[in-house]
């Protein structure tokens, strides 16, 4: 029986770990993972070794050093290259989350209700 309390304690410790030792991803990293390199095939500027991505990264670095807000940075890149440049569509298009989520939910409810629950 006691070992179950140990399990409980261990789980609590594990859940506290991220608070005690937080990870740090810089804003530059987050943003360079979110921007598409327009001359490469489907790579972000974080992944791409091309010089074009290099130039974009240095602009980005300057923007972050200048303390621009996320929406300002977003606006700058979208104005320049169109929405395509943002690989994280969730920031701009919430419907992309709603569509799959609603389909998945509908699917799950049909699946459970109609097909497999005993009346």
């Amino acid at each position: 029986m006691k070992s179950r309390y140990i399990t409980f304690a261990l789980i609590i410790i594990i859940l506290l770990m991220p608070l005690l030792f937080p990870s740090s991803e810089s804003r530059l990293e987050t943003w360079s993972k979110a921007l598409l390199c327009p001359v490469c095939q489907g790579e972000t500027i974080y992944d791409s070794p091309s010089e074009y991505a290099d130039d974009m990264r240095s602009i980005l670095e300057k923007q972050i050093d200048d303390g621009l807000t996320d929406s300002e940075i977003n606006e700058f890149w979208v104005n320049r290259y169109g929405e395509r440049i943002i690989t994280n569509p969730i920031t701009n298009n919430l419907e992309i989350l709603l569509l799959p989520l609603s389909i998945v939910l509908i699917f799950i409810s049909i699946f459970i209700r109609k097909l497999y629950v005993k009346k």
């Binding site: 169109g82 929405e83 943002i86 690989t87 569509p89 969730i90 298009n93």
Partner: peptide, 14 residues
């Protein structure tokens, strides 16, 4: 008639 990119963040989240 506009282009968007569905990238890693979408898949990571969902």
């Amino acid at each position: 008639s506009r282009q968007i990119t569905v990238g890693r963040a979408y898949y990571d989240i969902l």
